[in-house]
Design a protein around this nucleic acid. Structure first.
Lengths: 225, 225
DNA sequence: GTCAGTCTACTTGCATACTAGTAGAAATTG
DNA sequence: CAATTTCTACTAGTATGCAAGTAGACTGAC
């Protein structure tokens, strides 16, 4: 497991949650691997309490399975969970972008434009690795503008299943189209074109559908037999 | 605060969570009231640990506000949260019922029919108080049939804001129409009529929109000034 | 009386000890 | 040797103590 650096004003519990979460996504804590509150606590230099609380939070979305008095394991890749995460995101975000079209402000447009222009800049100059963060931020901003941040937070919890699979399928060929999508969505929002924005969002989010069998072939050990 | 009876195989943490949650909904723990891990633990006959873990889970959806080293309070009625809970339910459940129409099985139809018939029975015989539980179960079953139970669970966490307000506005005049709605939704599902089912669901879920100003007038002390 | 400072009682965050229960190794018995 | 039993080392659940910090009451100086 790789340790992260502490952020200012971060409690031990938040640090533990962030660390475990990141390690699950980048497979530092591989699917199926056994974890123990004691062991993780020792590795992070904390006591069991904050680590346990972090594990419990991750267990709520079944990315960690806790079996009392026996063991805790990082969940195997579960395509039903990946599917549920995608369904939740697709359904909510299409509705959110419609909402944004109806309540958009000049400040909101500005925030989205800044983001999209930066994406286009990185794209043109080949800094593809910077785009992922801006991509995530773009979508978060939509929820913020629609005043649906609590929903976004809940959704993120489940999306860890999706994020883990996304990390395994690193075909960044999609990047070009993704940036284009964002620009088109922004245009629709500026026009107040709710139906148009939804249509583009539907196309956009469907690009992320990963081929289960391809990943299953590449990482068979991470799947339930 | 009213104590519940312990369920079999229920851990202290689950018991604490269930107890606190129920008391928040039925106003045994009123909006704005101050709570303390120690005090709640004493009342429930538990130690701080399981109570603390339960409180943390509720704090994630901001129904309890925890201020470190100061206090924890039950959140005031926050209509933005109620709105987000409703939006989430409306958006997801309309999509889910469409999905159910496309993947319904004879067993699924049977389960829904049993539920609806029981609702109609209680309705005709005046056992209105029994309908609420069946209502909740009907909607849960839809998520189950669509294989989206994890989403349902996450959604329930946020819906506590909605449930609390629902408790305050006890006009059960809506019951008759609600049971009719369920029957109509079931019919649409049996026909495999996704568009029709969605339309009825939209109407159905819109019935629950509570008048904020009415509740604000009835319980001014539960709102932020 | 008024203001400043201190003290007390309380809060949650974290550390640690103990309990109940499991799994697998080791020992014992046939 | 084989089957069974016991023991050991581990797990997570819970209890409790301490640390860090806050708020309000109390005390004392002016």
């Amino acid at each position: 497991m790789t340790l992260l650096e502490r952020l200012p004003q971060e409690t031990d519990r938040m640090y533990a949650l962030r660390t475990i979460r990141e390690n699950i996504i980048d497979l530092g804590l591989a699917p199926g691997s056994q974890i123990s509150e004691n062991e993780l606590a020792a590795q992070m230099g904390l006591s069991r309490t904050p680590v346990r609380e972090a594990i419990m939070e991750l267990a709520r979305v079944k990315i960690i399975q806790v079996v009392p008095q026996k063991r805790s394991t990082v969940a195997m890749i579960d395509y039903d969970m990946v599917e549920q995460a995608q369904f939740m995101r697709y359904t909510l975000e299409c509705a959110v972008v419609e909402l944004v079209c109806r309540m958009i402000t000049p400040e909101g447009v500005l925030r989205l434009e800044e983001n999209v222009h930066l994406q286009q800049f990185y794209m043109q100059n080949g800094y593809y690795e910077n785009i992922r963060g801006l991509d995530d931020k773009f979508h978060e901003t939509l929820f913020e503008l629609a005043q649906k941040m609590q929903i976004y937070t809940l959704m993120q919890n489940l999306l860890i299943h999706f994020d883990r699979v996304r990390r395994m399928s690193l075909d960044s060929v999609k990047d070009l189209k993704i940036v284009q999508d964002h620009a088109l969505i922004l245009d629709a929002i500026k026009r107040g074109d709710a139906a148009g924005a939804r249509t583009i969002m539907q196309t956009h989010l469907t690009r992320y559908r990963f081929d289960e069998s391809a990943i299953r072939e590449k990482y068979p050990q991470y799947f339930e037999k």
